[in-house]
Design a protein around this nucleic acid. Structure first.
Lengths: 233, 233
DNA sequence: TAGTGGTCTAGACCACGGT
DNA sequence: CCGTGGTCTAGACCACTAG
């Protein structure tokens, strides 16, 4: 298995468990080299991933400092909801994965191979506490991940299910963001007034399987939990 | 000067000038090594930057392919407006850079050193064609970049001015996104109805000068030009 | 099979931060 | 001054794509 993934996940777990707290310095790159028997290239690659995911910031001459993760919906652009927000999150299905049609709700350009394939979709509402925050509907080529309609998600996460059961990793995403007035349906589900401004996010995920793209349309009530994102070079 | 920056900018320019078109393969990593007399580490670093900036995608076994840049406001999280959108963009000042107070409009947490320093702010409206798309107000510590109140921006870009005149580069950003109803003032400036949903983006930029952070509050009409962003691992 | 990108090793020198 | 991260060299082996 890839070494930098192992190092990255070890450190990530230590941060999540509080062994490294906000403001703490992670072991230096040279220390990581010794403890994991790797070279600096590999150590730096692991730290770069933590940087991209918003766990640390690097300070030239000092080290890698654990930083506060946004108390918002987190690095939305990277992975799914459950990885981003932390605890106190609940999800309910409006529609479990089932064979469906490619909907014209999908804003992203659909890969030509997808449009000829069988479409599977599912739809969920996400809560933080008792507060409905987001409605998300997802579409993908069902031929690529057979049996998904009968599978229970691993820890409630679609992306974890992809990773654990099908060995498919999300490798990137592109998105478009729009502020819109909530439709009647969306408003009802988010328990807000029809016409309230909501954030509409159209996402297309790329995965390690080039044949599998995941299309998502999200409708978010950002009044209490804004969407956060960060970018470091 | 850094070699990977030189290679990155050379390739970027070739893409922008159309020497490499959408769908074209960039020179392979080994070829770049030979033509620039660099090692693969450096060649890959240059390509990784183009990947992050959304110019290319990499295909294992094939090469680096030039991809279409979003015809939207682009990689918002990276740099300024003018770098992202392309031509046909116009900017007018509502308020040229001047000494101001730290406003409570600023959503991001202000660095403690900033709150004791002199604040400079400016505010602009951005147009695509004749269509007002975004209002942006920016605040920063005026002591760090003296003379900015008397300077004309380089090519109309604040970030280019920072880079060329003060040798300060933007190194990262974090942001929060909210859908809101347009206030009377915002609506008037964007030529829309008061209460129309708009996208409110609170940004904090980090720069290569650790003492300089830039705080931005943007209000965007996303109806014709959605905000785009992408992320690749 | 040849060429591509992905991972990794084992070093080197430099710039920056704090002592 | 020493330890830190930033850049770079000169290789190696592997996995993937395509002819």
């Amino acid at each position: 298995m890839k070494k930098y993934i192992k190092v990255r996940d070890k450190l990530k777990k230590q941060i999540q468990l509080g062994e490294f707290k906000v403001g703490d310095l992670l072991p230096s790159e040279h220390t990581l080299c010794r403890t994991f028997s790797i070279t600096r290239t590999t150590a730096r690659k692991a730290l770069d991933e933590l940087l991209k995911e918003g766990f640390i910031e690097k300070q030239h001459g000092k080290g890698s400092v654990v930083i506060e993760r946004r108390q918002s919906l987190g690095l939305l652009s990277v992975k799914g909801f459950s990885e981003a927000v932390g605890e106190n999150v609940r999800t309910t299905f409006l529609q479990k994965p089932k064979v469906d049609n490619w909907s014209d709700e999908i804003f992203s350009k659909i890969n030509s191979s997808d449009s000829r394939a069988q479409c599977v979709s599912f739809e969920r509402v996400r809560f933080v506490g008792d507060f409905p925050v987001m409605i998300g509907k997802n579409w993908f080529n069902g031929n690529i991940i057979p049996g998904i309609t009968e599978t229970e998600f691993v820890e409630g996460s679609f992306f974890k299910t992809l990773s654990n059961r099908y060995l498919i990793e999300v490798t990137g995403s592109s998105s478009e963001l729009r502020a819109e007035a909530a439709s009647e349906r969306v408003a009802k589900l988010l328990k807000i007034e029809t016409g309230t401004p909501i954030l509409h996010i159209s996402l297309k995920f790329k995965t390690s399987n080039p044949k599998l793209a995941i299309y998502s349309e999200l409708h978010c009530n950002t009044s209490k939990f804004p969407i956060g994102s960060s970018y470091f070079m």
